[in-house]
C-alpha cells in the first residue's frame, strides 16, 4: 500500500516539478529505470507468491539499479556502451516478462 502510494507521489512530483535530467546521469537514468521496474515486478510477484520481504526488496531494488548503471558506465568506458546497454535492457526485459507471466498466472489462473 505504501509502495503504491509512493509510486503515485513520485509520478505527481515528477509532473509538477518537471526537473531536467543532469548531463552526468543522462545515459544511466533510462537503464536504472528499467532495472527498478524489474525489481518492482519481482516484488509484486513475491507478494503474490506470499514470500515478499521488505529487506530483500530494498536490497534487490538498489543493487539492480546500481549494477545496471555500473554496467552501462563500464560499457561506455570500454567503448561498447550502446551494445552493452542494449544487452542489459534485453536481459531486464526478459526478466520483466517472466515476472509478469508469473503474476498473470496468480491473478488469472492462466
Amino acid at each position: 500500500m505504501i509502495a503504491v502510494l509512493g509510486l503515485v507521489v513520485g509520478v505527481v512530483l515528477g509532473l509538477v516539478l518537471q526537473p531536467t535530467v543532469p548531463a552526468v546521469v543522462q545515459p544511466y537514468l533510462p537503464i536504472a529505470v528499467v532495472a527498478a521496474l524489474d525489481a518492482v515486478f519481482g516484488g509484486l510477484r513475491a507478494v503474490l507468491d506470499g514470500v515478499f520481504d521488505d529487506r530483500v526488496f530494498v536490497v534487490s531494488f538498489l543493487s539492480n539499479v546500481v549494477v545496471a548503471a555500473l554496467v552501462v558506465y563500464l560499457g561506455d568506458q570500454l567503448g561498447v556502451g550502446a551494445q552493452l546497454s542494449t544487452g542489459v535492457v534485453v536481459v531486464l526485459g526478459i526478466r520483466i516478462f517472466s515476472n509478469a507471466a508469473a503474476i498473470r498466472r496468480h491473478l488469472f489462473r492462466a
Binding site: 518537471q18 543522462q26 537514468l29 527498478a36 526488496f57
Partner: peptide, 24 residues
C-alpha cells in the same frame, strides 16, 4: 514498518525517475 516505508520511498523515486525520463 521501516522496510515498508523504505520500499515506498524507492517506489516514489522510481515513479519520479520514470516521469522525468519520459519527459526528457
Amino acid at each position: 514498518t521501516r522496510g515498508q516505508l523504505l520500499a515506498g520511498a524507492l517506489c516514489a523515486a522510481l515513479g519520479f525517475a520514470l516521469v522525468v525520463q519520459l519527459q526528457a
